[in-house]
Structures are given as C-alpha cells and as structure tokens.
Amino acid sequence: MSKVKSKPKTKPAKALAKSLLTFKPRIVSFCCHYCSYGAADLAGTSKMSYPINVEIIRVPCSGRVDPLHVLRAFKEGADGVMITGCLKDQCHFVSGNIYAEKRMQKLAKELEAIGLGGRLVFELMSAGMASKWVETASSFYDQILKLGPNPLKRVKTGVKSE
C-alpha cells in the first residue's frame, strides 16, 4: 500500500484513463453442459456475433459453480462473471439451477457490499435459445463497459506500467 501511495498521483490516473480507452471487458462465462452450453454453441455455429473476450467454461450443471469459482475469477482479474443454466424444471440434475440462482443472488449481495456490485449475472435458457445467450452476453458486456475494469486488475496494471 505504501508503495502505491509514494508514487506521483498523475501516473496511475493516466494509466487509468488509458486503460479505460482501451478497455475490453474480460468476462468468464460458466455454461451448464446440457442447455446453456448448447445455446452458446448454437450461437457460434449459426455465426451470431457476440462480444469477444467472453471465455466459456463448461460445467456439468450450473449447480456445480461454487461461489469459490466466482471469487477466484474476480481475484484473477475477471471484469464480470456470467452463469447460465437450464430453464426452470429442465435442469438435468432436477434442481441444480434453482440452487445456483439462489446462491448467486446471495453472493451478489455480498459482492456489492465489498465493492464488486453488478459484476455477476445469472440467466436461465434452453439449448435452442442462442439469441438469448447472445443477448445476455452483449448486455452484460455493455454493463461492464460502463462499470469499468475490475478494480483489482487496475492495481496490477497501474503498478506494472510504472
């Protein structure tokens, strides 16, 4: 902390402005194998365009996503985390998606309390809903664009660029 302080204030500010100009949000997207991965896949094969820098991680079920995974993603510098699962009553593990939704809602509140509000999104969709996946990803991307880079990452780049 003292290191950061002792440096002239203008430089990080400059670095910040620069990083805002060139800011391309990095989004980690957890997709469940059965539905939402299908949707993302379909979006790809049908050549729909969606924001770059959305990195897809396939999980067996949205219920598999542990809050630890989300926290870890933020720690490693993700600007946003997006989790998608099957439609209600269509989860292949019966209620994984319901649990996932509840836990992510709760986690979102906690994230807000520490200053990472609005960077976590949860959506349900079926394998055929490619457009919904694209829509979710794009609007989330825009939201993150407005919020700016993950403040954790900013430290890193700020200090490194010195």
Partner: peptide, 13 residues
C-alpha cells in the same frame, strides 16, 4: 475470509 481478501485487494487500488 475470501471475501475480505478480495475487499482488501480492492482497497489497495
């Protein structure tokens, strides 16, 4: 906690 670790990281902006 992991949450507070994240927060500490954020604070050092």
């Amino acid at each position: 906690s992991k949450l507070d670790n994240l927060r500490k990281g954020l604070k050092k902006k």
